[in-house]
Design a protein around this nucleic acid. Structure first.
Lengths: 327, 327
DNA sequence: CTGAAAGCGCTTACAG
DNA sequence: CTGAAAGCGCTTACAG
C-alpha cells in the first residue's frame, strides 16, 4: 500500500480508501481511483486482512464447532454453513470436539483469541460454563443440533422428541412390541429427547422394559454397540425392532446385526435417525428420519448475520423432520 | 494487556513476554511471572491473536481447499487434516470449490489475504495459473488427491493408475468382458489416471469399446449418470460391469441401476473407487478401492509443517491403495 | 478532493 | 531483571 502510494505520489490513506471501496466517502477523483486500481493489479497487491481486522475489529470470519466433520451429517451441515458464509463474505474456521469437553474448551478459546465475529457450535455435555465465556464477551452465537437448556441463547434444532415418538408409533403400527433403543449416553437435548420420546411412547403403550434401553459411550462406541446388539439378540424375550439414535450408531449397529446373522426385517426392524445415501441401493427396509440439514446450516448463518447486524433478539428455532422408508 | 501492566505497575512488554511464554528470554523474575499470570486469569484475559499475527507475520492458520466437504471422502480427509493441525497448534479455514474454477480462484485469494501460513488444496481443472500465485508468494503448499503436472510442487496422491488397472484385471478374472467406465470429464491427474488405467487394460485385452467410456460433467452429474446407466443398459452388446470413478458417481449410478432394475451382480458387476460405510450391510457385492485417507490427510499437514520449518525440498508422495470386496 | 496522524493490540530489538 | 519505543499494515476521523 505504501508502495502504491509512493509510486503515485499520494498518501496511504487515499490508497486505502480506493482499495476498500470507500472512494465516494473519501470523495476521491475518478482518475485517481483508476490509477490506484490499475497499479494495485500490476503490483499483484493483496490487502492484508489481518491488518484490516486489527484496525476495524472485524475479522469476517466465523468459528464452527462440530462433533466430527467426517460424519456425513456434520459434513453436510458444515458444507451449507460454509457456502452461505462464503456468500456473505465470511470465512469459516472449523474445529471438531469428538464429544470431548477439553477439545470443546480449547476450540472456544482458539476462536475467541482469533477474534471470530461469531460462533456456531454443537454443544458438548458439560460445556455450559465454557459457552458462557462466549456470551459474556457478547460474541454472536448460535447453537445447532442441540442446545443447553440453562442458557438463554439462540439455537436451531429439530423436533427430536416428537419425531422419535412418531417413529416408535410407526413400529407399533407394524406390530412391533419389543422395541430397543440404542442411543449415546449423552445428557444433552437432542439425544435425551430422542431417547425420551421413545420411552414415553413405550410406557404409554405398556411396552416399556428398561433392558431395551442401551446407552452407549461415545469414545468406545463400536465395542459397546456390538455388545448391545449381542445382548438384544440374546434377550430371553425376543426383541423385534431397534431404534438407532444417529447415523454412526446405525452404521455400526447394522454392521454387527449382519455379522451376528440377525435378519432385517425378519428378525428385527430398524429405525435410523438420519438419512444415509446408500439407502437408495442397500437392499434392506429401514424407517429413517430425514433432517432438514441444509435449512439448519443456512439458517444458522442467517441467525448469526442478524446478530452481527445488531439484532440481539434471541431466536430459538425448532425445525420439522420427516419419517421416511427405504423400501 | 495494557490493563494488566497498569495494575501491576509494569510495562506492556513485560506482560507480553510472560504471557507468550518467552519469560526466560526476557529474564523476568519468577514472582513477576506468577503475578502476571494470576491477574491475566482473573481478568479473563484472552490474547488477541490478530494483533500477534500482524506483529509476527505468522497466523498459525492454514487454508484447506476441497471439492466438497459434504462428500464423506473429503470430510474424512479434512477431519484428519484438522486433528493433526490442531495438534501442531494450527487452525484450519476450509473452503469448497464444487469443481468451479471461479470458486477456486476466490478461495485462493481469500486465503492469501488472510495471510494463512500454508495451503493444502485439491486442484480444480484449469487452476494452474491461480496456484502459481501461491507459489510465487512462497506460501507453503501441498496438493492433495490430485496435482498439476506442470507445477513442480508438493503433492500427496494415491496410485490411481495402477490400482484402476488392478480393478479391471479383477473384473476380467471374474469373466467380465464388456466393462464400462463412468468417470468425471475432468482432465486432471487422479481422474485421468483412473480412466486411462481402465482403458489401457481393456485395450491390451482387446476389450476396448469407446461406447463403454462415459464422461460425466460435475455440475449436472445426477442427470448425466442416469443417462449413462440407461445407455449402458440398452447397449446392443450387453455390458457386464461398471467401474465408477468416485463414491458420488457410484452412489448415483447404483441408485439408477436399482431404479432401472439392473441386478448386481447378475446383470452387471460394479467397482467403486472409495469405500462406503454402508458396504458393511448393503447386501450387494462390490469391488472397491480403499484409499489411505487418514494417512493422506496427516501427511499433508506434515509436509506443510516441514516447509514451515524451512525445509524447501519438494516432496511428491504416491501412497498405495487397496482392492477390497464387500462380500 | 487529499494528506498527515493516530490507533488497533500485540512483539521485539535495544537501552539501561 | 525491566522499560520505552518502534513497528506490523491497515482504517478513519480530522484538517485543510
Amino acid at each position: 500500500m505504501q508502495d502504491i502510494a509512493d509510486k503515485l505520489g499520494i498518501s496511504r490513506g487515499t490508497v486505502s480508501l480506493v482499495l476498500s471501496g470507500k472512494a465516494k466517502t473519501g470523495r476521491i477523483s475518478d482518475e485517481m481511483q483508476a490509477k490506484v486500481k490499475k497499479l494495485a493489479k500490476e503490483l499483484n497487491y493483496h490487502p492484508n486482512e489481518i491488518a484490516r481486522s486489527l484496525s476495524t475489529g472485524i475479522t469476517k470470519s466465523i468459528g464452527v464447532i462440530v462433533t466430527d466433520i467426517s460424519n456425513e451429517f456434520f459434513g453436510k451441515m458444515v458444507f451449507y454453513i460454509q457456502e452461505r458464509a462464503k456468500y456473505y463474505g465470511y470465512s469459516v474456521i472449523t474445529v471438531n470436539t469428538n464429544e470431548c469437553l477439553n477439545d470443546f474448551d480449547e476450540a472456544i478459546t482458539v476462536l475467541i483469541n482469533r477474534q471470530v465475529d461469531g460462533i456456531i457450535l454443537v454443544p458438548v455435555e458439560g460445556g455450559n460454563e465454557i459457552v458462557k465465556r462466549v456470551i459474556n464477551r457478547k460474541i454472536p452465537l448460535v447453537q445447532i443440533d442441540r442446545f443447553y437448556r440453562d442458557l438463554n441463547s439462540n439455537y436451531i434444532v429439530i423436533d427430536n422428541y416428537n419425531i422419535s415418538r412418531q417413529a416408535i408409533e410407526v413400529l407399533f403400527d407394524e406390530g412391533k412390541r419389543r422395541i430397543a433403543v440404542i442411543c449415546y449416553d449423552i445428557n444433552l437435548s437432542a439425544l435425551t429427547e430422542r431417547r425420551q420420546g421413545c420411552i414415553d411412547v413405550m410406557k404409554q403403550r405398556g411396552l416399556f422394559d428398561v433392558e431395551l434401553i442401551k446407552n452407549i459411550g461415545y469414545d468406545n462406541q463400536e465395542k459397546e454397540i456390538e455388545q448391545a446388539i449381542k445382548d438384544l439378540k440374546n434377550s430371553s424375550n425376543k426383541v423385534d425392532a431397534i431404534f438407532f439414535c444417529s447415523r454412526k450408531v446405525f452404521l455400526a449397529g447394522v454392521k454387527y446385526m449382519v455379522q451376528l446373522g440377525i435378519k432385517i426385517p425378519e428378525d428385527m426392524s430398524v429405525v435410523c435417525f438420519d438419512k444415509i445415501d446408500a439407502f437408495s441401493f442397500a437392499n434392506i427396509p429401514v424407517t429413517y428420519i430425514e433432517q432438514p440439514i441444509q435449512q439448519m446450516g443456512e439458517k444458522a448463518i442467517d441467525l448469526l448475520i442478524e446478530q452481527l447486524q445488531g439484532n440481539n433478539q434471541i431466536k430459538q428455532l425448532i425445525l420439522n423432520s420427516d419419517i421416511k422408508f427405504t423400501i
